[in-house]
Design a binder for these strands. Structure first.
Lengths: 220, 220
DNA sequence: TGAGGAGTACCCCGAAAGGGGTATATCGGT
DNA sequence: ACCGATATACCCCTTTCGGGGTACTCCTCA
């Protein structure tokens, strides 16, 4: 296609982070680099997605820990909205779950906020050029995650309690909460508690997604 | 110590049978079970359908051999009336035609009246929990019917319109109505119209059942 | 020309689902 | 003896689903 006709142009960057001070710092840092340019900022997911659709930036720097809608969700929203920008997660969390979830969700990079400024700039330039960037601190963590098997597609069943796995199978049988409650001799309210917990753990949005995933996974 | 204060977890049962004595016996038997409760009785199809619409019981126990309107017709009337209760046929007939017709018409179970009382209770409980129950005597018969081709397992996709098939695939993708609407550029209300039509045609009870069925069928 | 199916859109309504809490009891391990 | 995980039950609330209806347009087929 007709990408990149002006090959010497700056790469546009969208910042999505709920900390104004950090945004300001990062923006100033980026402006020091002739190859990068901040074209918009958002302090929450909704604004971020809207601005991303509007500007289709080359690069999106995305914070994970935001109120209301977290970074992973934001990333999925961006992908669902058809935003094809490179997305680099930029966060303080070196939690394995977060890293794995972000990469599974299609992040093009995962950088920690305690990086040296020069190193951050170098990494952002690499990301803008289409290379995947990962903070060095995370390499061993990623290796471990890979070892332990579940490095591939889809949600992770390992964090689930026995009760939650049991309820997933019943959901995959098409049962509503009321029937699940009767089958397990507990109240419907308790079933709903389990359902909301497992939805959170699996990072899924509804019982329908749970059912589809479970059936495809062969749990049924 | 918040133990089971709720306890409205009994499954409601509607009896439709033209034999008063048998109804009485079955009712007494069911009342022995804490998990089941007879909430209405009918001695003919018309009353049965009316009471089913009125009470929307969890379970309907339906006799096949009734005057004027037989059980199969009653079952179809119930489904046409939008009654989503589990329906278990309860009869003396081990005739293959009847069994196959009942199951094709969407029966959730087929039990013979010569069962042991304890076995009947166990089966009714299973049915109330959403499991299909079939008298063991009928298994060989069913196997034979299956061999001879006219198995007709599960819902039938042939009656669906192109739009409905399209929406089924999106449901099987885990999408809620709102997103389906956006993807098809129609209103959410219209999506809901299609969903309720296809639920009726497939004789399924919720979008979760649609999703599970579609995934297992390889659609999507 | 008229009937009927398909698709769209809207109305109303109740039930189900889901997300946020708080609270209790049990069980293992530090 | 405390702490965290698990499981249970309840409260609040909003959103989503599903079923009933009417109505209009566009086709197709008899």
């Amino acid at each position: 296609m007709s990408e990149q006709i002006e090959s010497q142009s700056q790469a546009s960057v969208l910042l999505i982070d709920d900390h104004p001070l950090l945004r300001k710092g990062v923006k100033q840092l980026i402006e020091l680099d002739d190859d990068l340019q901040v074209i918009a900022e958002a302090s929450n997911a909704r604004d971020g997605v809207r601005l991303a659709e509007q500007h289709e930036p080359d690069l999106i720097l995305l914070d994970l820990n935001m109120p209301e809608i977290n970074g992973i969700e934001t990333l999925k929203m961006l992908r669902d909205a058809g935003v094809s920008s490179r997305v680099v997660v930029f966060t303080v969390s070196d939690n394995e779950e977060d890293v794995v979830a972000a990469l599974k969700a299609g992040a093009d990079g995962y950088l920690l906020k305690d990086m040296e400024p020069e190193e951050l700039l170098a990494n952002l330039n690499q990301a803008a050029l289409g290379n995947m960037v990962i903070s060095e601190r995370l390499t061993t963590l990623l290796a471990k995650a890979l070892q332990s098997g579940r490095s591939n597609k889809g949600p992770d069943i390992s964090a689930l309690t026995p009760r939650e796995k049991q309820i997933i199978k019943l959901i995959a049988g098409g049962l509503p909460n009321k029937l699940i409650a009767r089958k397990l001799s507990i109240t419907e309210g308790t079933v709903k508690v389990h359902v909301k917990h497992l939805l959170k753990k699996l990072n899924l949005r509804s019982r329908v997604e749970v059912a589809v995933w479970a059936v495809q996974e062969g749990l049924g």
